[in-house]
Structures are given as structure tokens and as C-alpha cells.
Design a protein around this nucleic acid. Sequence first.
DNA 1: GTCTCTGCAAACCCTTTGCAGGGGG
DNA 2: CCCCCTGCAAAGGGTTTGCAGAGAC
Lengths: 162, 162
Amino acid sequence: MSEITTNFNDRTIEYNQLLDDFKSLIKKNNLKFTIQREVILETLYNSDEHLTPEELHRIIQEKYPELKTGIATVYRTLSLLEDSNIVTSLSFGAQGKKYELGAKDHHDHLICTVCGDITEFVDEEIEKRQHKITDELGFKMLDHSMQIYGVCKACQEKNKSN
Amino acid sequence: MSEITTNFNDRTIEYNQLLDDFKSLIKKNNLKFTIQREVILETLYNSDEHLTPEELHRIIQEKYPELKTGIATVYRTLSLLEDSNIVTSLSFGAQGKKYELGAKDHHDHLICTVCGDITEFVDEEIEKRQHKITDELGFKMLDHSMQIYGVCKACQEKNKSN
DNA sequence: GTCTCTGCAAACCCTTTGCAGGGGG
DNA sequence: CCCCCTGCAAAGGGTTTGCAGAGAC
């Protein structure tokens, strides 16, 4: 039995639960619950992809054109969600960040450099080693991220058949 | 009194090697070897830090003010060096990249979110697990990077004494 | 002499901010 | 009603690009 698990797309967290959490957070900080904030959370929830702020904005504009949601609101809401650990971001150099719901369990990323597809995985042994390393150095770990770049199975096969 | 040989010579030899590699690369691609390109490589070599393009530019301007090296040249040369796998970069979201010589052995990074200091480490067990994961998924690994974010020992102690 | 490389400045892209009006609690 | 949130547009920060002259080969 492998310790490796992939693709958390079978949602462990119900949307209503997530929404409730977000509402509590908002109430606790004397913020306001707006339709824009709800739509951004919902869109992130319903997407299996890692989205850039721009992609998120475009999807929302297409689905709810009457809201005229501004890109600035998307950025502001993503910051709020990231600060609250509801979403997490992946950096892609100067080409910006991609966001995903962070309510799932922690996981790392396999990134295909051909098709851009991102696969998630968790490895308990790696997690353990990370703690061991930081403990030994007296480093207080707050977060970590790991990306493996390469060519996914599908792209390798596609390449063979050409 | 004999000439003293120190381990500094190792670095000198490595630098000449590096420079030769760079020159071959340049010749092979019908590019030109310029003083600016040499100074950029040399500065990266002589720095133990991970540098941003801006930092690199500032150091070069201070050391060789007569060259009036432009920031654009720094960016162009870094791209050239990265494409050639002579340097590697670390992403910091929208806040840009930091570069380091990639000729050293592979290693991962501990990044202090307080002082920005970067510590390098290698853990064989993690490297092994990464190969195991990609093998099982039929993913062809080309590269990987891991960053652990947190507070370094020095910053924790500084914080205590305040 | 040819053709790349350079510095400069403008352009670009992504992200943040200031502002006045809108809307949640 | 207060004051947070929004859309808009302008500003910001890092990076790239167009250009004409300088320089490598």
C-alpha cells in the first residue's frame, strides 16, 4: 500500500461548510459579506483548476456579467482569503500566482511543462523529513511548497505517437 | 617562503571552468562575449547570496561604475544564463525572482519570512521519495524545487529579546 | 564591415491604491 | 446611518522591448 495519494478533487469539504467558515471569519473581523465575495469563493470551489486572478475574473464576468466585478475586487478578496488560509497560492515567477482552495489537506504539486497540467500529491515521508530538517536547524516552519516539474504520462504518450 | 595554496584556488579553477563553459556556449550560438556578460557571471559567482536582478545591477554599478551597465542587460544576460542552465531562479510571487549559480549541486531552500535570508539544504530521503512518486505516476521528472518558509533561529531569538 | 549587444526610455504586465458612490449590518 | 466595499482609473513595481549607436569578431 502506497502512502502516496493524488487528486483531492473528491471534495472533503462541503461548500456550505466553507461558506459558513467564510461568514464567521467576516463577522469576527467586522467585515461585510458581499455578493462579490461569495461569487469568488464559489468559483474557486467549483473549479478543479488552479486559477490566476485574471482567469477567476474572466470566469466570474462570464457567469455573472450583471455584477460587473472589478479585477481589483478579485485581488482584494484573494488576499483576504489567503490571509485567512482559505486559499493558497502557487508562484510562477514574474508571471504571477495561481490560487486554489486551501481547505483541502496540504499537498504538493507535479507540474507538466508541456501541457501545464498540475497534479497534486502528498507524501507523509517527505512531510516528516521536512519537520526533522527544520527542527534540527531551529527553524520555525510556517509553510512550505514543493513543485516537481516534468512531463506527465499523457504528454509522453502523445509525443510517442507523433 | 612558499606560495600558500588555499581552498580559494578551488573556486578560481571552478570560475575559469564556468567562464570557459559560458564562452563555448556563446561561440556555439554565434553570440558575442562582452565585458558586461563577464561581469554579471563573475558577480553571481562571487556572491554567496541569492540575488535579485536589481541587487545584481546595484553591485555591478558600484564595482564597475565606468561600465554604466543597464538593468536591461542584467535581465537579458540572466535570461541567457537561465536558458543555458548556468543559473537557476527562485520565484517570489509577484515580487520577482532571485538568481543563483546553478552549477552547484542540487539543493532546496529554507526561506526566512522575517529577514529574507535563504538557507540551502539537501535531504537524500526527500530526493528518493520524489523519484518514487514520479516513477509511480509515470511522470518524467525534469526538475524540482522545494521551499520551506518560516522564521530562522536568529530572528526568533531577536524577537525574544525585544 | 557585419551583425550582435548595449544603454536608454518607453512600453508592458500584473498588482495595488485613491477616490467617490453604493450597499451591508 | 455608519463605514466597509466596490468599480474605476491611475499609479506602482518589476520586466521586456524598440531603437540608434557602440563594440565584438
